[in-house]
């Protein structure tokens, strides 16, 4: 749940794959106004029947697609396509050209994550997160085993 004083946000989600559609479904169910963009029309079948937002079929690297999605009027933009570079480009356009206040990009490649952050883009790297969680789980299991041995 997005917690804040405001009850409804204008949110643009670029990429309607597994992550994008999950977010779109949840945020729409919470009553936010959601616009999803994907260049593959079949991707929208990931959206649930309760999804009450808009679907825009188009290439997010074309500025006209982002204009169609009224990106400049949105408060939150999430770039969750399967292409790191598309996400970076969309995030930069959202932040620096459309002046959107909250922008997050998904990046798979941990090497690129640092670059994105240098450019002032907030990122989520599933690879780094999964790696960290995995290491933590192993460490926990090892401590547990060591404790049992004592």
């Amino acid at each position: 749940m997005l917690k804040s004083s405001k009850s409804q946000y204008h949110i643009v989600i670029v990429g309607c794959g597994r992550l994008g559609s999950l977010l779109a479904n949840r945020l729409s169910a919470q009553g936010h106004s959601v616009i999803t963009i994907d260049n593959n029309p079949h991707a929208f079948s990931n959206l649930s029947t309760e999804f009450s937002g808009f679907r825009i079929e188009g290439d997010a690297t074309e500025f006209s697609t982002l204009e169609k999605a009224k990106m400049a009027q949105s408060e939150i933009v999430i770039a969750s396509t399967s292409d790191d570079n598309v996400n970076l480009m969309v995030a930069q356009v959202a932040k620096k050209i459309c002046n959107v206040s909250h922008v997050v990009a998904r990046v798979f490649d941990p090497k690129k994550e640092a670059t994105f952050q240098e450019m002032g883009i907030d990122t989520i790297c599933p690879t780094s997160i999964a790696g960290q969680v995995l290491l933590d789980t192993i460490a926990e299991s090892l401590t547990k085993q060591a404790g049992e041995k004592k």
Partner: peptide, 27 residues
């Protein structure tokens, strides 16, 4: 791919300090 050209040039000047960068855009 415009997204690739953008990042390549940005890396070029911000990361590697290449004096001249140029991107060809498709759109």
């Amino acid at each position: 791919n415009d997204q690739d050209n953008l990042l390549i040039c940005q890396l070029g000047f911000s990361h590697f300090h290449i004096p001249r960068t140029l991107a060809v855009v498709n759109d």
